[in-house]
Amino acid sequence: MLDFDWNLLLEIDWVEIGEATLDTLTMLGVSMLFTVLAGLPLGVLLFVSAPGQLRARPRLYAVLSFLVNVLRSLPFVILLIVLMPFTLLLVGTSIGVAGAIVPLVVGAVPFFARLVENVLREVDRGVIEASQSMGARLPHIVFKVLLPESLPGLIGAATVTAVALVGYTAMSGVIGGGGLGDLAIRYGYQRFQTEIMIVTVVLLLALVQGLQSAGDSLVRRCRFD
């Protein structure tokens, strides 16, 4: 490291770095969107169907909970490969950025859903009981009580999920998904181009740091005091 030639930084193909950054942001943005769209309802379903909860369905809960655990226990690299036929069916390709988004979503949804379930469990039971005493139906309770009351927690959960997704995107290179992580592996690791490694790591660090700060400041802004 000490004899690292800093002049190498000048020779970096910044266009390629730029493209990789864009790929990462695309994969992150699109997969995050679908993760929230699918994971939030799944998390709510897990919460309300759990034994002793608002719409206790112990068997449904057991099945959902098992599926979530299965998906969460698969290493993401395996998920990438296993899902290839499914991805092809769904988006017409199983490679590249588009091909990476499906496994990213499938990997992140169970993670996010479980976080959502835990956040919802923190909502004061008394508040739920109070809304039941006012004649609230389940949709009322979900949309007017559970989700608004747990908004800071939900934003926190989304932040944690987004940061985890940044990690997942690094592996998408396996299927030619591209992005900063892929660049770091191909040039920095496999071809010993340390300068690329440094730049990508710095960019990834900035991305994660930015996501976390943005999440934290949103949480601060919508805390209820």
Partner: peptide, 22 residues
């Protein structure tokens, strides 16, 4: 019918149970 009826039964709680988000 019970949910409808409950709308006209007020309830006040020891720990108030107000919505913090509102």
């Amino acid at each position: 019918a019970l949910q409808q009826r409950r709308q006209r039964i007020g309830m006040v709680f020891q720990h108030f149970n107000l919505l913090r988000s509102r």
